[in-house]
């Protein structure tokens, strides 16, 4: 599904350049569940942003589902991301002014679904994530675990083939974290490819393999189950 070859990203720093990613070669097969681990500043979140097509300022090759991302225009990259990628954030990043149901509608509205279809999908999603009772509440009225549940529901409502999660349980206590990771496992079992960034070995254990990073380099990988 994903193939990165000699991917590098640098930012200008004073007179020289600071490399955030160096010679990254990575393949992620469809249905994989990859965990990126490493110390702070290793380049995990940066790599996640590149994979999610949020960041276009890098060199090297990136093939996504057979399409050469490095040759796509910004508009086409955006369209590709819209169709295939879902994001889960550490700080949930729900839209404060919107209710739970409206937060779920947002990605669908950007994908051009009709109003009727949006309503049907949101109803299904609320049902599937068992948050029907919370649909009219605002994010501020939910606990952290509930907010992240909505964040995951929002990430997958457009049925993305790739789900990217940046420290998805970083702000949750252990019980809530375990529930979210079990949810990820279930989604992966249903066919969604997942790449997560985490510091937690316990969370990494829910994935299929772990890729270690340091100073922008990939330092090796190991299977986790």
């Amino acid at each position: 599904m994903i193939r990165l070859q000699q991917l590098e990203k640098a930012v200008r720093s004073g007179a020289g350049q600071l490399y955030l990613l160096r010679n990254v070669n990575l393949t992620v097969a469809s249905g994989d569940f990859v965990t990126l681990m490493g110390p702070s500043g290793a380049g995990k979140s940066t790599l996640l942003a590149v994979l999610g097509l949020l960041d276009a300022e890098w060199t090297g090759e990136y093939d996504f589902d057979g399409q050469a991302v490095h040759r796509l225009s910004p508009k086409d990259r955006q369209a590709l991301a819209r169709k295939h990628v879902g994001f889960v954030f550490q700080k949930y990043h729900l839209l404060d002014d919107l209710t739970v149901a409206e937060n779920l509608e947002v990605p669908l509205s950007y994908r051009g679904f009709s109003r009727k279809e949006i309503q049907a999908r949101v109803a299904d999603s609320l049902d599937r994530f068992q948050i029907v009772g919370k649909k009219d509440l605002y994010p501020a009225q939910l606990s952290g675990g509930q907010q992240q549940l909505v964040g995951v529901a929002r990430a997958v409502i457009g049925e993305p083939s790739l789900l990217l999660a940046d420290e998805p349980t970083g702000n949750l206590h252990s019980e809530q974290a375990r529930e979210i990771m079990q949810l990820f496992r279930r989604l992966n079992d249903e066919g969604t490819t997942i790449v997560q960034v985490t510091h937690s070995a316990e969370n990494a254990a829910f994935g299929k393999r772990t890729v270690r990073m340091a100073d922008g380099w990939l330092k090796g990988e190991e299977p986790t189950r």
Partner: peptide, 8 residues
């Protein structure tokens, strides 16, 4: 967030 969710 909206852009990450697909808004152009």
């Amino acid at each position: 967030v909206r852009m990450a969710l697909g808004a152009d």
